[in-house]
Every structure is written in structure tokens, then in C-alpha cells.
Design a protein around this nucleic acid. Structure first.
Lengths: 344, 344
DNA sequence: CTAGGGTACGTAAGCGCTTACGTAAGCGCT
DNA sequence: AGCGCTTACGTAAGCGCTTACGTACCCTAG
């Protein structure tokens, strides 16, 4: 008999069906050892009663949590919110719950969040955002994740490697190459890079691509102006100020993500520098607003939402002997923020 | 003795401290009935062992879940991601976990998500986004939330009323008034509204503000062109096409949120309509990209992140006899997308 | 000196599930 | 008939906590 005004429990279902607790549990879990008719009756009754298993009791008893913890740098950064959207979509389809944490781009805080998530006994950890150059932090995260997986947890990374877990990885270097080639094709010779924090592997990878493209065309990467700031609009603005002041002959700016590119565009506009007439600008990621900026942004498209889904898909599969790596496609999307280098 | 390679349990702490389970539990919960020295020793040992309570066991035993469920329309819509950022921030400070769900702006699916969250025994439900005009759906949600609160759950809404729960509410109508007045002050007489879905209370409220401002100035709201679409960039684009085609004499467009405003600006640009020279555009919300658009967007600022925090704060307080309502400030932010009405 | 009342702690009964193990019935086989 | 095997189910022991209740002790008042 369900208690007055309380959610029904498994015993209530079992009593209604006149079976034992164990049989009810088996039937609802779809495990075998229950005849088809009895199983159907139990499911039917559970449905009528509006029975939904208490996940706390279930997890405590079985030891297998069905919630996924997602770590992002900032939820209100479009790059991450699109990833989160993908994860949440697929999780909803699978009946999983997503717990989300922000690391605020701080490696130590991120580590703390990771530990917290694991201590909260989530079943799956998904970690997004760039890796850090700091070997201490990376090793600690790696160790934490290894222990977590050894206890039966599953983990996957989005856009970061070197964590010893499955990962979905965009080809940041190839993207950098594509951007630099595009600008060189347009005749640009004085190219500056508005880069995120120097300690991020994503920055290093994208930058490496740009440099290698220059080298391929017989140009010295040493000529490249690189200004480090951070992966935000504010960072893009700061970097642009510096580029404009210290390297006034620059004709193209490569922002290493779209957030920075937005800051770059905004500063150029307020400084009265026409884009792309006097300055070409490119970004990276193709967040959904990129197409609606003025001018619309030439950038590298990454399938963020799909990356989120893929990461969860990987984590849902049984662990492989060695970490899997799923590359993601990328695509140069040419829009209105790039044009031929101005004649001087 | 902690089991090899396993997380320590409360018994492990208790054994190390040579006290009973109950005492250890009391000490760590900071409840009384434990002498100061013993409590300190227990806390010390727990810390050394890296003990973190198993939330599943805790919740099962105490019946009080410490996870908060957040329902948004879309996480990758900046309005919602900024709210989510606020909620997640405060939750992290309070040691709470946030489970996030997307309703996809579908009232029925939203209701389903709400039920799911409650069935998952979250302790707090936060529901954001506009209410719906559909009384059936609203009543169902209201009933669900009432039952949830009667069982000890806490709930709060962000930007929607009529749910019988605490709410933080921007003054949508006053915002609409401010926008319309601003445009009339600039001499605009042919104003069109790019509105979200007709079934949303937010749309109705903001629209009511616009109409009432017209009335205050002795103008007939009947003259107002209102095009319904949806609260997305695509919706803004569609609405703009329609306005341009059917009402070519329009000199100002009020988009009822910033996402739509972005679509409006993008369409005007591709149609070659200069903003604000031939058309003024305003939005609503002041999402963080609004300042970086070209032209930068005149809009009503809502403190989304703070709204998220406030909602959680409300939910953390004990339930009041009647639902509380926290108004939020709003502010007309004038930027470059509005200017004097063109002389004809 | 004892009754009464705190204080500090221990004991044990759950919370609502899962699951290892036990058991009874039915089957085919020798 | 007796054996073993499978199938379908029940019994009960936890999972790791919280908390009502019990108990030993000390302090004070009468």
C-alpha cells in the first residue's frame, strides 16, 4: 500500500503485483529470471502507480551511478554552452542526469571540481576545455581520473588529450594551418595572432598550425606577431590594442577563438579600422553568433554540439584497453571579415 | 580500516577516531552532542583520510537531497547560459550540485522534464524561461510543484510567475515601456515589434509595455505592427523579412529579446538597410554579446547571472506562507543601434 | 545522600533499492 | 523411480549513511 501522499516504492509495486521485491526489481530492470507475463504485469502496475526508482537507493545498492558530471570553463561562453547542449541532449535521451561544474579556466580550481565530482560518486566524468601546460596539474588530474576509472567510473575529454582517458579531439593544428593559408592566399604578409593564455595546449596547438603554414610557404614564423591574452572577448580587445599600438603595419589578425575574435572586431570598430578593407580578422570554433557578427566572421567550424554527444557516447561504451581518440572534422568557413590585403 | 583502494567510509573515520558511527556523523554534520575535542579529532581524521560523505547514502538516510535541478529552454542561448552561470556559481559556493535540463521551449516536454527532475528526488527545482499561455500546462506544472513542495522540496522560478512558487521577476512591462519611449523620443512613429511565440507570457508582458507607452503618448497601439516568430536569431530574421516586405515604412524594430535582435540586425545588413540611419533596432535582456554587435545594441539590461543566484537564494530559505516575489532591476542601455527617425 | 536533570556518547533501526543465494517445481534422462 | 538440470521465484543481507532512543556519567539541589 503506497503511503499516503508519498512516492510509491518498489515494495508497493511488488505488493500490488503479489510478487517479491526481488522479482519486481528484476522485472523493472529487464533482467532475466522472470516469466514474460509476470514481468509485463509488474511493469504495468509500476506505470499505473507512477513508480520511478529512487536513484539514491539504486545507486547505493548497486554502486553504479547514472549521473554524468560535466566540467566546462564557463557555461556562458558559447563554445562551452554548445558542448553542454550536446551532452545534455544525449543524456536526456539516455535517461541520464547531467551535473555541471565551472572551472573558471583555473587549473587548480578545475582539479578541485574534478575531485568534488568524483567524491560525489558520479558515474561518468566529462571534461572539456583546453589542457594546461603545467605538468603538475595535468599529472594530478590524470591520476585522479585513472583512480576513478579503476573504481569503475568512466571518463572522456573534449578537446584535451594527455589525460589518459578517451577523448574527442579537433585538429587544432590543421585549423591553424587553414587559417594562415587562407590569409596568405589573400596576400597578407603582416599577420598577428591574438592568442589565449600561454599555458593552454589549445593555444599552443593552434599557434603551431599557423607557424607551420608560414614555414610551408617559406616564411619565417619569427615574423609572426603573437600577443597572449585570454580566451575571452576582453582578451581579444586587449590583444588588439597591443597589436595596433606596437605593430601598426599588421593587415590580418588571427584570433585563436571566436570569443577573442569578437573582442578584436569590437576594438577595430571603435578604433575606426575598417574590416576587411584595412584589416582581416579570423576566429576559431564557429560559435553560432559568428555568422551574425558584423562583419560576419571567417573562422574554423568545430562541431561543438556533436563533440559533446560523441564524448558521452565514448564514455558510455566499456573502457578500452587504451584511451580512444575520436578526431572531429573542421572546416574553414569564409565570411565577410577577411579580404585581400590592402595595397600599400 | 579503509578497504584497499576504496573511498573511505564513515565507519573508517569512526574506527580511526575510536568513536561510534553516530558520534562521527554528528561531529561531521556539526550537530551538537559531541564535545569540542572529540569533534575536532574526528574532523581532523576525516580530512586526513580524504573522507567525503557518499551523497547517495546520505540522501537515502536523511531524505534531504542537496542537488538542485535547473530547467532552462536552451543552454546555448546566452540568456539562459548566463542564468545558469549564476546558479552554478552560487551552488558551488554552497557545496550543492546542479543538474541541468533543457525544455527546448516545448511546454509539454518541459513538464516532462520537471516530473523527471522531481522523480529523481532533487531537493530544489529552479525553473527559468517564459511561462506559457496554455492554462492546462501551467496548471499541471503548478500542481506538480505544489506536491513537490509539500513533500519538502523547494522551488523557485526565474522570469515566470503563476507557478505558485517563489520567483525572481524582471519587470517586462516596464522594460517594454522604456524601449518604446526611447524610440518615440527619437521621433519614430512607425514602429514594428519582432515578437517571440504568441503563447509566451514574457512576450505578452513586454508587448503590453510597448502598447501602453504608445497609449501614454496618445497614440493608438493598433498602429503597432506586431510580427510573431520565435525567440531565436532565426526568428528575428524571419520577422524582419516580414516587416520589411509588408510594412516598408517602418523606421524602428523592437525585438523582444536580444537573440531576435541579432537576427534583425543580420537581416537588415544583408538587405542593405543601414542601422540606425534608416532603421533603429532595440533588443531586450542585454546578453553579453549585445555590446559587441555591429552596431552595438540598444537594449534593456537584465541581471541574468544575479537572477540565477537570487533564485537559488530564495529556494535555500525556508518556504514562506505565500510565494515570494523578488523584482529585478532593469535598465535601458542606449548604444549605437538606435538613432533619430529618418526624415522623410 | 539521593533524586532529578543535563551532557556525551553508543546501539540499532531504518532509508529504498540490488543481488547472492536458497528453494521448489518441472523437465528429460537413464 | 531417482537423478540432475533448468527455470522462476523468494529470502535476506547488505550499500553507507542518519537519527530516535538508550545508557552511563557527572553536576546540582533538596
Amino acid at each position: 500500500m503506497p503511503r499516503a501522499n508519498q512516492r510509491p516504492r518498489l515494495v508497493d509495486v511488488a505488493e500490488h503485483a503479489a510478487v517479491s521485491l526481488a522479482t519486481a526489481s528484476r522485472a523493472l530492470a529487464g533482467r532475466e529470471g522472470v516469466s514474460a507475463e509476470v514481468a509485463d504485469r509488474i511493469r504495468q502496475i509500476a506505470h499505473e502507480l507512477g513508480y520511478v526508482a529512487n536513484p539514491y537507493a539504486r545507486t547505493l545498492a548497486s554502486g553504479a551511478s547514472s549521473t554524468v558530471g560535466l566540467i566546462v570553463h564557463q557555461v556562458d561562453d558559447p563554445y562551452f554552452s554548445e558542448i553542454a547542449a550536446g551532452v545534455i541532449q544525449l543524456a536526456a535521451e539516455q535517461g541520464l542526469l547531467v551535473q555541471i561544474c565551472q572551472s573558471g579556466r583555473d587549473p587548480d580550481y578545475e582539479l578541485q571540481q574534478l575531485r568534488h565530482l568524483i567524491a560525489q560518486r558520479v558515474g561518468i566524468v566529462l571534461i572539456s576545455g583546453s589542457g594546461y601546460d603545467d605538468p603538475r596539474v595535468e599529472a594530478a588530474a590524470r591520476a585522479e581520473l585513472a583512480a576513478f576509472q579503476d573504481h569503475g567510473g568512466r571518463a572522456a575529454a573534449i578537446g584535451r588529450h594527455a589525460l589518459g582517458i578517451d577523448a574527442v579531439l579537433p585538429d587544432n593544428e590543421a585549423g591553424g594551418v587553414a587559417l594562415a593559408q587562407h590569409l596568405m592566399d589573400l596576400g597578407h604578409r603582416r599577420i598577428a595572432v591574438a592568442a589565449g593564455s600561454a599555458g593552454l595546449t589549445t593555444v599552443a596547438d593552434r599557434l603551431a598550425g599557423v607557424s607551420s603554414a608560414l614555414r610551408q610557404r617559406g616564411r619565417s614564423p619569427a615574423d609572426l606577431v603573437v600577443v597572449h591574452s585570454d580566451f575571452t572577448r576582453g582578451g581579444g580587445r586587449a590583444a588588439t590594442e597591443q597589436i595596433l599600438n606596437e605593430h601598426p603595419d599588421t593587415t590580418a589578425i588571427i584570433a585563436l577563438n571566436d570569443a577573442m575574435a569578437m573582442g578584436v572586431l569590437s576594438t577595430l570598430r571603435s578604433r575606426g579600422v575598417p574590416v576587411p578593407a584595412r584589416m582581416s580578422v579570423v576566429g576559431f570554433d564557429d560559435v553560432s553568433v559568428a555568422a551574425d557578427l558584423a562583419p560576419s566572421l571567417t573562422t574554423i567550424r568545430l562541431p561543438m554540439t556533436e563533440m559533446g554527444r560523441t564524448a558521452l557516447t565514448l564514455a558510455l561504451k566499456p573502457r578500452a584497453t587504451r584511451p580512444r581518440r575520436r578526431p572531429t572534422g573542421h572546416l574553414l568557413v569564409v565570411r565577410d571579415s577577411t579580404g585581400p590585403a590592402p595595397k600599400t
